[in-house]
Amino acid sequence: MGLVNTMNIQILLNQHAHGHLVGSRMAAAPLREELEIALAQQGAEVVLDFSGITATQSFVDELVGVLVLRHGPDVLGRIIFKGCSDDVRAIIEFVAADRCDQFIKNHAH
């Protein structure tokens, strides 16, 4: 048949917020594990929905930065960032750039 039933998941971060903020690394780590399980399937994509909230850089790093360190920059192509405010967008861009750079340097030799 050749048809693979891929599981696309969506994570609503406002369900993990205190007020309007997701902050601690400890809260992000289990969500990253969920992402890793989903992304282990070929072709799967995940949606991270930041609607209505702000995230700390630590939280975003634990969720996305650590994923890049472990699996490489290509993993970012399979993540859709939804509902980001300008602040959240800037934080994600910072974390992604910093950790991709680090990954590439670590694997350069």
Binding site: T54, D86, R89, A90, E93
Partner: peptide, 21 residues
């Protein structure tokens, strides 16, 4: 306070393509 103004600068050549929606 705007968090986007407080982050360390990223050199332009290091920016990565991301999928925002």
């Amino acid at each position: 306070v705007r968090f986007r103004d407080l982050l360390p600068p990223v050199e332009p050549q290091l920016a990565v393509r991301l999928r925002f929606q």
